[in-house]
């Protein structure tokens, strides 16, 4: 995709997005609702036309083609299964429209039913299937014509939590087995992190960062990305020195730690760094880089969250696993020190 822009009247839904999606990858568009991710998907499918820019598929411009002329299929958010057709007829619909012979359609449908574990359900009406089964039919239907790209528009949002988890694994398996490029839209960061090869985080019509789940989570390039995904501590710091891909920064307490920084940025002066709560440790006063008073302990079962009022202002959250049963060893209003692991802090771009 090249310099895609989409205007709805005076509202710019998508602003100059350029993305390259590699073949055979599981690519996710992640962002809050209204960030333009669905519009982007609909432009790839052909339901919307870009106001500017092109959609290229293997180097050919497909941005002006009608949806039925594009080798791209969609799994709709509400599945959009044809209620008057059986499971098999639904799955075979695309091939039938392409004018494939009946024998070929039948054999593909059979393969597809097997692929999504719905053998023997071919003649059922789709209206009698459970939500998870409908989901599988929708997948099979979109995969049957072997599209070059499969688009998935928040397909898991209608399922309950347990089913959603198992469908996540299922989707990943299908992607690996078929080798088809998946473009997945979601606002659920966990979904994106578990399934994707690469993620594009979007906000207000622009792509903020593209990278592997690890990049996105551990090396957020800017405040929006860090904030949107997971919990984060933001700290003000001064850059002391830069060497290679690391920089030394001085915290408000005067302690120095090493931090990574995004590509294409030379950090200097005052910067904001982020530290994930699980990358810090609590200790007795004087043992870490930040000192403060333990304000609140939130027990979460597997973990504890420690809210620390840092000397000099601000709250820092430390997450520690409950490795053993019993009290955590700290009490509220106690003075503590926060240690930050090596190379876990990331300097933000802005």
């Amino acid at each position: 995709m090249h310099g895609i822009k989409k205007w709805f009247g005076t509202f710019q839904a998508v602003d100059d997005v350029t993305l390259e999606i590699r073949s055979n990858e599981f690519f996710t568009l992640l962002g809050p609702s209204g960030c333009g991710k669905t519009t982007l998907l609909r432009m790839i499918a052909g339901f919307e036309l870009p106001t500017e820019g092109q959609v290229l598929l293997d180097g050919t411009d497909i941005s002006r083609l009608l949806p039925n002329q594009r080798p791209v299929n969609t799994v709709f958010q509400n599945y959009a299964l044809f209620p008057h057709l059986t499971v098999a007829e639904n799955i075979g619909f695309g091939l039938k429209m392409l004018g494939k012979p009946k024998s070929e359609i039948d054999s593909v449908v059979k393969d597809m039913l097997k692929l999504v574990h719905l053998e023997g359900r071919g003649n059922n009406p789709v209206t009698q299937l459970s939500g998870g089964q409908q989901q599988r039919v929708a997948l099979a239907r979109a995969l049957a014509p072997r599209p070059k790209v499969l688009l998935l528009d928040e397909p898991l949002s209608a399922l309950d939590l347990k089913l959603r988890k198992s469908m996540q694994m299922e989707l990943k398996r299908l992607q690996l087995e078929t080798g088809i490029t998946f473009v997945f839209v979601t606002h659920d960061q966990e979904e994106a992190l578990t399934m994707s090869d690469r993620i594009a985080v979007m906000s207000t019509g622009t792509v903020r960062q593209v990278g592997s789940p690890w990049d996105i989570y551990d090396r957020p390039a800017e405040r929006f990305v860090a904030d949107f995904i997971g919990e984060t501590n933001f700290l003000e710091a001064d850059v002391v020195s830069v060497s290679g891909d690391r920089a030394r920064v001085r915290l408000s307490s005067g302690a120095e730690i090493s931090a990574t920084y995004p590509d294409g940025v030379t950090p200097k002066g005052k910067v904001t760094i982020v530290v994930r709560p699980e990358h810090a440790r609590l200790g007795p006063p004087g043992s870490g880089v930040l000192e403060g008073v333990l304000d609140d302990i939130v027990y979460l079962g597997t973990d504890n969250h420690f809210h620390v009022k840092v000397d000099g202002g601000g709250t820092f959250i430390v997450r520690q696993q409950n490795a053993k049963s019993g009290p955590c060893g700290f009490s509220e209003q106690e003075r503590v020190s926060i240690a930050i692991n090596d190379d876990v802090a990331q300097i933000l771009r802005d």
Binding site: L49, P50, T51, E52, G53, D61, S63, R64
Partner: peptide, 13 residues
């Protein structure tokens, strides 16, 4: 395809 994007949208409309 030499159609500009606006033309195509307008034409569909």
């Amino acid at each position: 395809m030499t159609l500009s994007a606006q033309d195509a949208t307008e034409q569909r409309q």
